[in-house]
Amino acid sequence: MIVSLMIVSLLPFFLFLGLYLKSFLLLHDYHLGNLLFSKEWKPGIGKFGFYPFIVGSIWVTLLAMLISAPICLLSAIHVTQFTKKHVLRIMHPAIDILAGIPSVVYGLWGILVIVPFISRYLGPFFGVQTMGYSILAAAFVLAIMIIPFILNILIEIFRTIPIALKESSLALGATEWQTVKHVLVKKALPGIIAAFGFGLARAFGETMAVLMVVGNVVKLPHSVFDPGYTLPALIANNYGEMLSIPKYDSALMFAALVLLGVSLFFNLIMHFFIIRFNKY
């Protein structure tokens, strides 16, 4: 038992150490700021600029959150406050299934539905020529993928708020929406932020679905209809050739290290928000 516990507890440290040692080669030769903010990605001649990938990742993630967050919040409030029990009984399996669908299937669905939709309708509507494989497509698919994740946490959070709080607000003459706006959301705010933060971290690391619809072009995107490239997609796309070019594997491990760092950082901060929510 103790041995198993030790193995499991040390896992994150091993992950960090392993990836750090691997990317040490790259960190030794290049300046950290240079790696993160240089725009040139030419592994063949030893130029490793991660800036396009980082920017691509941030665009896709933020856009996905922008689509997903309001939908999740409104739906969580609706399901927990305004409906009868049976709606929740339908929503729970629906969330389970959405959460269970593998990312490859989401990616495939994105190619079948979202990409044509953007290239045929949304692009022309805004007067843009686009292939459909774009930042926006990735954000759409990603937004749907993180819905079950965020919604689950939000529903749990809204359920823990005592019903007396809502009732006293209603008794004082507030309308239901006023109650939601001024009482429930204010009370649940740390929890809501935490839910969005977990979703953000999850979206940042998502690989296959994004890889399949984002277009994979190493370029700084200028609009949401441009194709882009994300950090996880970079790692997944280049595993085959990374041993043939010097320092390439080290660069990819560095990308993984950045992902690990971002994910740990976000989860760490959001845990403090959850703790604050529970304290109230």
Partner: peptide, 12 residues
């Protein structure tokens, strides 16, 4: 914390 780490990091 470990749960939140993306699977591609485990892959790498």
């Amino acid at each position: 914390l470990v749960w939140g780490i993306p699977s591609i990091v485990y892959g790498a």
